[in-house]
Simulated assay, not measured.
Amino acid sequence: MAERELAPYARIAGELRGRIERGELRPGDRVPSTRAITQRWGVAMATAGKVLALLGQEGLVRAVPGVGTVVAVRPATGGPGRRPAAAEDETAQRARIVRAAVEIADAEGLAGLTMRRLGAELGVSAMSLYRHVSGKEQLVALMADAAFGEQALPERPPPHWRDGLELSAAVQWRLYRAHPWLAAVMNLNRPLLIPNGIRHIDWALAALDGLGLDAGARMHAAVTLFGYVRGHAVDLEPESEATRTSGVSGEQWMRAQEARLAALMEGGSFPAFAAARAEADLSPESLLDYGLSALLDGLAARITTPPN
């Protein structure tokens, strides 16, 4: 049967089954709840219930009281010499912990992530987590590294330096949008020394090589670019938290301020602001793009060796 002919619950179950079979969801990992399924795929609660029921009948998931529906541990095959699937090695266990922590922080903010909360999510005691991570500080560093590793920069950068830096900035912005907590943990004064974060600096340095800039200028340019994108992203988590707690989106909040803003404009107290506001349509992306263009224009003026 073609995929478009499948019932909605069967199609969604097929997607989740594929993630389990590919190892993207491992034994013990939570699968989307019925509520999450309704929100992500736009189906009714009854349909979402059928999805989990079908996966349960196939032995792929099981319900854990107080935790939710998780991927079931399936018996290993291949003879007595094969290690059971439940006996994950240290790397796999730590990766599972980090994935769960990222999911919590994405949904509830970094403040909602505690070792107790994480343990409950994984169905283990909080103390057992300390066998794999030394504490929340190390956990957050691992989370940031995992987040930056989600979207790899191409092995070969674009031939023009500006295209390369714009691509790096765009990837960073997408990661910050996907993980609103991420910008707040990336401190330039006390940087997290994570491989996937350093990779963005390395990419920018390579893009600027051979343009007549000395090592100090290249490093300043690369770190400035990283800090610029991060600076625009630091408002994402407070905005996400405000939307989550109030139920009012940023756009809705701005529309609600129109009357107050109009009152401030009365009497001509701010003529330049009023005139520019009538013409400008600001958004996080437009502000990011405008500043990035200005930053790269300024950098271009410092380049003494034209690119090939």
Rank of each mutant, 00 (worst) to 15 (best):
residue 99 R to E: 02
residue 46 A to T: 13
residue 108 E to G: 01
residue 110 L to P: 08
residue 62 R to K: 11
residue 68 G to N: 05
residue 59 G to M: 10
residue 85 A to D: 08
residue 114 T to W: 04
residue 63 A to R: 15
residue 74 R to H: 02
residue 67 V to F: 04
residue 93 Q to D: 00
residue 81 G to D: 09
residue 75 P to Q: 12
residue 87 A to K: 05
residue 102 V to L: 12
residue 124 V to N: 08
residue 107 A to M: 03
residue 68 G to F: 02
residue 81 G to L: 15
residue 77 T to R: 14
residue 128 S to H: 10
residue 120 A to T: 12
residue 66 G to D: 04
residue 88 E to Q: 15
residue 107 A to Q: 13
residue 50 K to Q: 15
residue 58 E to T: 02
residue 129 L to C: 10
residue 122 L to K: 11
residue 58 E to C: 06
residue 115 M to G: 07
residue 125 S to M: 06
residue 84 P to D: 10
residue 97 I to H: 10
residue 93 Q to W: 08
residue 87 A to R: 11
residue 83 R to G: 00
residue 54 L to N: 07
residue 93 Q to P: 00
residue 85 A to W: 05
residue 66 G to P: 07
residue 50 K to C: 08
residue 45 M to P: 05
residue 117 R to C: 00
residue 87 A to H: 07
residue 91 T to N: 05
residue 102 V to Y: 01
residue 60 L to E: 09
residue 110 L to E: 10
residue 82 R to D: 00
residue 90 E to C: 02
residue 75 P to T: 04
residue 70 V to M: 09
residue 79 G to H: 00
residue 54 L to W: 06
residue 89 D to N: 13
residue 130 Y to W: 07
residue 77 T to P: 00
residue 127 M to Y: 11
residue 45 M to A: 13
residue 93 Q to G: 01
residue 100 A to G: 13
residue 70 V to H: 07
residue 126 A to K: 14
residue 93 Q to A: 11
residue 63 A to D: 11
residue 76 A to K: 01
residue 123 G to E: 06
residue 88 E to K: 11
residue 119 G to M: 12
residue 94 R to K: 12
residue 106 D to E: 11
residue 91 T to Q: 14
residue 80 P to C: 07
residue 48 A to G: 11
residue 53 A to G: 02
residue 115 M to L: 15
residue 55 L to M: 07
residue 97 I to W: 13
residue 79 G to R: 01
residue 48 A to W: 04
residue 84 P to G: 12
residue 92 A to E: 11
residue 123 G to V: 05
residue 82 R to S: 02
residue 47 T to G: 07
residue 94 R to E: 04
residue 95 A to H: 10
residue 119 G to R: 09
residue 89 D to K: 01
residue 128 S to A: 15
residue 70 V to N: 08
